[in-house]
Every structure is written in structure tokens, then in C-alpha cells.
Amino acid sequence: MNLTRTAYGTWSGGRFMHYGEQLSEEHYMQLMRDSFAKGVRTFVTADVYGVGRADALLGEALKGIPREEYCLVGIVGHDIYEGIRQGSRGYPRFTDPSLRGPDKYYDYLKMATEKSLERCQTSKFDLLMLHNPDSISYTSDKVWDAFTALKTDGLTDRLGIAPGPANGFTLDMIECFERFGDRMDWAMIILNPFEPWPGQHVLGAAAKNNVDILARVVDYGGLFHDDVKPGHKFRDGDHRTHRPGDWIEHGVEKLEKVRPIALKHGLTMLQLACLWTLGNTAVKSVVPTLIQEHGEGARSIESKLDELAALPAQCLSTEEIETIRQIGDNTGCMALKGASQRHEGQEPRADEWPMRPDLLTLATRWSLGTSW
């Protein structure tokens, strides 16, 4: 089963990524059962979430549902087995030279995939993605030979990449599409009405290389759920406390500018964000984060799932999509991850590395300029 238009991510519900209240395990699993029952039939999980616990809870939640009735997306790449967690940077990538060389890539990927499948209580993913690739995974034939072998082994029907956790990796992704697009079916990027940049710059290359896009953070940190207002108090440790201090105020101001378009079509703000995102070239599926916010007046997380499940057919015009893009334009608002000129002279790290001249040539070819 290929990905459906709407998807549920196991990072929802606050258990494994800190957004809002943390649901109990039973509530967390019930939300996934409700998701299936209401028609959101694609589920995305990563082995690093809860060091396998998200996989296990998803497997338990979907137990008894015929496997052919839902799409299962797995994500591997952080070495949670032999790697040592490095504080806020998380677990190292499996390609870390201190852990293994290229001759062991296949062994690791096969082991990690099989263990994730076992926790999910199934034998095959519909899509398997490389999680937060480093510069090696974006460019190495050895990595992609090993990764492709998993499809040959019958462990997955499709392959893809899931960059992150921050925004960026634009030129790295385009190069990866051009080098390995014949082996790749999907890529997951950050894209929403208020963060069109830089994700929009990979869409043309994705389409040209027949790579479909799964968009995450469609809700823009929960703002499009419409219950985060100026003065909102986040719990300690909430991921969104790392955003600039006035992001809510500026976001709400933009929200009110696009609200008339939502009202015109009878859409909630989350539905507007989803349809805008799906209106972009190559985007075929959206996976917003469902959040139970802290405090009085917060909407139930179930009501947010209801909005996602009831997403109507595309009703936004090309002109409306462009109007929203202009209102939400965030060009240059952050220091991007991946290949960047700001890393000149530095040793490559897992999520940032120096720019290469051939990537700037690629940027010129795609009319993306030479300032990265």
C-alpha cells in the first residue's frame, strides 16, 4: 500500500518528541486506533523514538487490523544499538566512522530494519526511509547499495530519505535525487504555509526524478491547530521553546491574514495548511503533528485528528496558494543545516558540513543562486 494523502506520525501525542502534554500509553495507542478508524491510514514511525518504544506501541495499537489495510512507514539511521547518545544531538548515525566502515553498512541496516519490523509486529514496511542522513548517506554508493538491498530482501516495497531534524539540506537533497532517484520513491521535508523556504526549492528536482514528497510540520509548530495564542505557556522542555521568542505573535498575525481564505472554503486552519501544502509540486502526503496543548482552553487532540481525517478534496486555486505563500514567506529566516558556506574550514558534523563547489554548480543549474 502506498502512502495516503494524510498520515499519522508516532511523534504526535507528546510521548517521544516534546510537544504539549504527554499522553498516557493507552491514550496514545487509542489515538492511533482512532486514526485508522477515521480514515488516516498511513502511519510513520522511527526506531529512535523512545529507543524502539514508539514502534512497539504502534504495533500493539494496530494489532488485529489486516496489514493490507494500512500503510506502514519505517525510518532507520540513528544507531540506537551500538551508538552512545550525545546529549541534545541524539544518537550517532550508523555511518559514523567510529562505529563501522562501509563494509558493515548492510549488516547494520538489515539488523535495524528487522528489529523495527519485529516491534511493529509485521514483516515488511511499505516505505523505509533513511533518518537524518549525514553527508555520507547523501552521497555514498555504498550506503545506497546497502539500502537498496533491503528492498531486494523483501523488507520494504519502497525507499526514501527523511532529512532533519532542523530545516535545510536543500542542495544535498537535490544531489541525492539526481544520483539515487532511480532507487528512491519518497522524501520527507518540512513544508507549511509559513515555512515554504527552503523546502520549496527541492520540489522541482523531486518531481523531475519521480520522488514523491511527504511533508511534516504542516501545522507550523501547532499554530495551525488554532489554540496557540500570544502569551501561551509551554511546558519546560517543549521543543517549541527553541523557536524565536516572538514566533507566535508573528505567526498569529499571518494566520489572521490567511483566515479569510479558509472561511471562504469552509476549512479549518489545519485543513487550510494541509491543502496548501498538498497544492505544491510533488507533495502527495501530509503528516502534521497532533498536539494536546497545556492549559485551560486547549482543544482536545481528538478534535485535531477529526480535522485531519475530514480533509476535503483540493479546493484552493493556484492564485490562493501563491497568495498564502507570499504571506508566509520566510526566506532567510534561519541558518540552514547540511552543506553551507558558513561551515567553511570546519570538520563535518552529523548535520552540518562545508559547502562543495559542485553543489554550488548544482545550485546555479537549478537557479537557486550561489549564497548558501
Results as ranks from 00 to 15, higher is better:
E319R: 12
K151N: 01
S300H: 11
P357F: 03
V143D: 01
L72Q: 05
L278E: 01
H201V: 09
E175Q: 15
W366K: 14
M1R: 15
G222T: 04
L359C: 11
G245N: 14
L308E: 02
H242A: 15
G83I: 03
K63R: 14
L109F: 09
D55F: 00
S367T: 12
R85P: 07
C176S: 13
L359W: 03
D358V: 11
I75E: 08
N280I: 04
S116P: 10
H225I: 04
M355N: 07
P97L: 05
W353P: 12
A363D: 05
A215H: 05
Y91L: 07
H294F: 15
I75G: 09
H18P: 11
G154H: 02
F224D: 02
I321M: 04
D47L: 06
W372E: 04
H343I: 08
K115I: 12
H18S: 14
G9C: 01
Q326E: 15
T241P: 07
S317E: 00
V218G: 00
C333A: 15
V218H: 02
A262E: 12
Y108A: 14
D126E: 12
A162E: 03
F169A: 12
Q346N: 12
I261T: 12
A112G: 08
D219I: 05
R67I: 08
V44Q: 10
T156I: 00
A61P: 08
W247G: 09
L31Y: 06
P198E: 04
P163S: 05
G338N: 04
G160R: 08
M111E: 15
I261H: 00
C333Q: 13
M1W: 01
L336M: 14
Y70I: 08
E352C: 13
L305Y: 00
D306F: 01
D185C: 09
I291H: 00
S88W: 09
M188S: 13
E352W: 11
Y105A: 10
